[in-house]
């Protein structure tokens, strides 16, 4: 069984984002790039599943759509433990075109389980995983908070409004993962970092596609009005303000 983990390359989550002139692009000066936090967790889970030999997982591959400059992020995933990587050599801005490229990778590689995060921390598209499933017409389980294997069959819990369901489905499948999928992201050990250098990264050229959406500009939301401080000895004033000024209680 082969697992494909789709990873997106995002600014470190503590970045104070700024944009370049015209507000069309991120100002990448000083930005640290990391694996999207959800993808780091989904990679961790894939590796945990592989560690258990009885699951019969032959490889965990990471896939990324992006230019050569995202290679350090791919190497990091290899250092954490992925066996190999595929990079589709093009810019990633529109979720549909990213999904189309990834769907091609899935077809070529014949993966059984494709894992995507619930959202990338930069685009917040919540799109790519579901689109891959829609394009390939393979089963999709979204809001996945745990993924196990039971005799070669995926055993999944998915979050519903007001509860959770334990479900199973046939392979190949796409799992869109969220909170709970793994506890802590696995970190690269020295040995992993050494080994990552010699692991294969296959670079493939993109298939033809047109973007369906385009970001025209970004805007940093206006800072909220300054905080109004209330004397801790006079908590009742806060309740009064919430009732009469904000009118929300």
């Amino acid at each position: 069984m082969k697992i494909l983990v789709c990873i997106s390359n995002v600014p470190d989550t503590t970045t104070r984002v700024k944009f370049t002139e015209g507000n069309r692009n991120l100002d990448s000066t000083g930005v640290q790039w990391v694996i999207n936090p959800w993808d780091e967790l989904s990679l961790t889970r894939a590796l945990e599943l592989k560690d258990n030999a009885s699951n019969g997982i032959s490889s965990v591959t990471v896939a990324h759509v992006g230019p050569a400059s995202s290679e350090p992020t791919i190497r990091k995933a290899l250092a954490i433990g992925a066996d190999d990587a595929v990079r589709v050599n093009c810019d990633a801005s529109d979720s549909y075109s990213v999904a189309l490229q990834l769907a091609e990778v899935v077809k070529e590689g014949g993966y059984d389980i494709v894992m995507c995060g619930i959202e990338s921390s930069d685009h917040n598209g919540s799109s790519v995983g579901g689109m891959i499933a829609g394009l390939l017409d393979v089963p999709l389980v979204s809001a996945v908070s745990s993924l196990d294997l039971r005799g070669g069959e995926p055993l999944i819990s998915r979050e519903m409004d007001g509860g959770r369901e334990i479900v199973t489905t046939s392979l190949p499948m796409v799992a869109v993962v969220q909170k709970g999928i793994a506890k802590e992201p696995r970190i690269a050990a020295m040995r992993g970092i050494m080994m990552a250098r010699s692991k294969p990264v296959k670079v493939v050229e993109p298939v033809d596609t047109a973007a369906l959406t385009e970001v025209i500009e970004y805007e940093i939301p206006a800072p909220r009005a300054a905080c109004r401080f209330i004397d801790p000895e006079n908590a009742a004033e806060l309740i009064f303000l919430l009732q009469n000024e904000a009118k929300i209680i």
Partner: peptide
């Protein structure tokens, strides 16, 4: 809705119709 179910089905519809999606 941009909730569990909406996040699940919206991208599939988008892929089927090759329609642009704005989430959230």
């Amino acid at each position: 809705a941009n909730n569990n179910q909406g996040k699940g089905v919206a991208p599939v519809i988008a892929a089927r119709l090759a329609a642009g999606l704005a989430a959230g």
